[in-house]
Amino acid sequence: MRLSEIQKLLNCELISDALSSDPDIEQCFAADLMSDVLAYSTSEAILITGLSSIQSVHTADVADLRAIIFVHDKRPGPQVVELARNKKIPLLTTKLNLFDACGVLHGKGLKGA
């Protein structure tokens, strides 16, 4: 599933710049605990999280994740957005909670990473 399709399904707002590419996403990982992401995620997944600190972007970068979707309409600060821009990691936010966001994507066939 394309990231743009995920954006529509979760009614996401794009926080960083317009998507420079629209990667094909097969897997998702959802957690607020970055150590869990580092320990258990697989590369090229997207991260769904409620953690909007700068460590979420560093985590996505070192774990080779494709994008971050923040839940509960969370919005990271400008420093976080700037880092994501430099690392070419799209940031999106949805009003849905973590459970519902995962439920929607799971229902559409995305797998857990």
């Binding site: 607020d32 605990l33 970055m34 150590s35 869990d36 992401v37 580092l38 320990a39 999280t49 953690l51 600190s53 460590q55 979420s56 985590t59």
Partner: peptide, 13 residues
């Protein structure tokens, strides 16, 4: 913990 760390996974990771 608010930074997403400190769950006792660091060294094992």
């Amino acid at each position: 913990r608010e930074r997403g760390f400190g769950a006792g996974l660091g060294l094992p990771n």
